[in-house]
Design a protein around this nucleic acid. Structure first.
Lengths: 248, 248
DNA sequence: CGAACTCCTTGATCTGCATCAAGTCATGCG
DNA sequence: CGCATGACTTGATGCAGATCAAGGAGTTCG
């Protein structure tokens, strides 16, 4: 583990308020590993022995059934993933693979559960994080069931812009095929939808999204804080894509 | 509150392991209310002042956006709902309405959060419950994104049967229109799907589901423990329908 | 530098599911 | 008891989005 890693992990909502001794104990029992791009870190159904913290790179969480796959979430530094399975000591419901070369800290689930019982502030953080994850995926489900795919794309674009303080232009945080799968559509359909949205106030050039008419886009997207956030919550982990960047 | 209420609440996973004094304190700060059928108990966006416990009747959790609505879950006695919002002190993401005349216990969210800090066993139960809710809705989302509507109906029928110990016949726990909305389809489409499924080992007569050829149904549904359960988890609250009953 | 990928796009076609419109049946209520 | 209401079904039609097929553009690697 690098010396600069600890403070970065420590500043996460999940670990920020806990006792220093307990934090050191937790991280003392952890490992760091480097993984090449495209490696399957976790196969759904495996026992959840570790909470993962992405320090560098990017990890895709995805679900498989029969021959089909879909992207559930993409995790970028510095964040954790699959807290629920670790805490419950239950099998992972999602698989995980690296999208790039990644460096990941592995915190043993057993250590997590032990410290949970001994550090009230940590327990509060865990429950808040978990409730945040739950609420995040509820939002996601609402979007899937209540909106059609064009509306989902439009509100995704608008939401990203809002997260960046209303930026009129930004760079997508993930490849379009991942965005499509995350939004529950095919790459072909996303591509055609992007074309159609040019008449509704947003243009996409490669990885760059340019909002040309915010009002018009909002009219289509009908943004709703109870779906798109922002929440008084912070942690959205487990069912979202990373934030976009304003500049490439 | 009736004298028989307390033991019924106490036996819930969420309250079973906690300290008796703390339990009494929690319930001592609670209220009971009776509501007629069809009443909106909670409007999405409202502050989450109470954790709700359904003692009698039935409650539908649903989401709204624009003019559209969808059923997220139906809660029957004895279970709690919207734990996540209460714990986080955040606005409800779903609305709730009674489907029948219902009796509901209201536990103040503030009391919940206080006791969480003072009773480690309760904290463990809360975090387990919440993780269970999260995992339950992850399963739900996987089903929505990976299966088409016919497969969702087929696996729903098969799952219910399995929950009843492999019963070849049972009664639906909710109206078909709710089932349809829960499964992300229209009532018309569900109706037609039921007809189509007669060739795949299941027949539906009114509210009664009869599995005529389990193997054939399973071939279509391709049940998967990582979507359909059962889990080592118990609590599935927040994103499921109630269990069916074997006899009407 | 060329070749082999992979990602993305575009076109053509097909189909699952929604929508619209009646009509039946059961239930509850005046 | 008869009417009204709401749940469910069935049919006709339309559309959103999937699938299939092919081409282009950027990237990686020998």
């Amino acid at each position: 583990m690098r010396p600069e890693d600890l403070p970065e992990v420590r500043q996460l909502q999940l670990f920020r308020s806990m006792d220093t001794d307990k934090f050191d104990e937790l991280l003392g029992r952890s490992y760091v590993q480097n993984f090449p791009a495209g490696l399957e870190l976790i196969r759904q159904g495996d026992p959840a022995d570790f909470l993962h913290v992405v320090m560098d790179g990017a990890v895709e969480l995805y679900a498989k059934w029969g021959g089909r796959e879909c992207t559930m979430s993409v995790v970028r530094p510095v964040s954790t993933f699959i807290l629920a399975a670790s805490i419950r000591n239950a099998p992972y419901l999602m698989s995980a693979r690296t999208l790039e070369r990644s460096r990941i800290i592995l915190i043993p689930s057993a250590a997590l559960r032990e410290v949970f019982r001994r550090d009230t502030e940590f327990a509060v953080s865990v429950v808040n994080e978990l409730a945040g994850c739950y609420r995040s995926i509820v939002r996601n489900t609402k979007g899937l069931k209540l909106r059609n795919s064009r509306e989902r794309v439009a509100s995704y674009f608008l939401r990203q812009s809002t997260l960046l303080g209303g930026a009129p232009s930004y760079v997508l945080p993930v490849e379009k095929r991942l965005l499509a799968s995350y939004l529950g559509m095919t790459p072909e359909n996303l591509s055609r939808t992007l074309r159609a949205l040019e008449a509704h106030g947003v243009k996409v050039d490669g990885m760059r999204v340019i909002i040309t008419d915010r009002a018009r886009l909002a009219a289509l997207a009908q943004p709703d804080t109870l779906i798109d956030g922002p929440d008084p919550d912070a942690s959205t982990n487990g069912s979202t894509l990373p934030e976009a960047r304003a500049r490439a």
